[in-house]
Design a protein around this nucleic acid. Structure first.
Lengths: 111, 111
DNA sequence: ATACTATATACGAATATACGAATGGATTCG
DNA sequence: CGAATCCATTCGTATATTCGTATATAGTAT
């Protein structure tokens, strides 16, 4: 009997590898936008609400809200409602480290 | 005399911050694609040439070449010609660490 | 209930990205 | 030189992102 034909025997990337890269790509896609990085940097040292982010970043309210929605959907940030306001903070404390490492590697000063 | 109107006084993000986020976004954009992450992971432990990447990732030659072009353009990888072949390797050894940190934060196993 | 503030969502237009097909170098070998 | 191999680029099309406008929802106060 001939050997079973596997994904590897056809020189295709194994499923796990592909899935892992797709998941990772979803995360990096969330970070691949200046406004979203601006948001992330501002909440790294303490949560902020939508309105304050809107003021600091000089963008429309729906725009900020849309970007926050993407970050939330990808698990980059978490939100908490307090009365009529909703504040956002990083979902993981190591996110600061991630940005720092990236900045070092690509020699981007991040003030 | 009235105080000079600065970007900050208009609640706009300072230029440096914006530029830094844009640069960083360009980098993350390079990483925000499954094929490009697949490439990166494979060359982390040793350079590979285009044809071998093509075989392993089961994509067309122009496709691999296009993705490599993007990674090269963003400073993620560097290339070296050897005869008729061109081999690629990460531009910085810390890129492996970057992927690891991201995988840990988002609980993605990367085999 | 009404009015008001803060945030989220829906939708469409403009722009960007990804892919394959075709083509264009560059290098080696005969 | 010509042929073959390996890689890069161009271009058209399909899909995805981004943004603003308009509208909806949640909470608060009167």
């Amino acid at each position: 009997m001939a050997a079973a034909e596997t994904a590897e025997s056809r020189n295709q990337p194994p499923r796990d590898d592909l899935e892992c890269c797709e998941e990772m790509a979803r995360v990096f896609k969330a970070l691949a936008n200046p406004t979203r990085l601006g948001i992330l940097r501002r909440i790294i040292d303490g949560s902020m609400c939508v309105g304050d982010l809107q003021d600091e970043l000089d963008r429309s309210q729906p725009n900020i809200s849309q970007h926050l929605g993407i970050l939330r959907d990808r698990g980059v940030v978490v939100s908490e409602r307090d009365g009529t306001r909703v504040s956002y903070r990083p979902a993981d404390p190591r996110l600061g480290e991630l940005l720092e490492v990236a900045a070092q590697i690509f020699e981007i000063e991040h003030p």
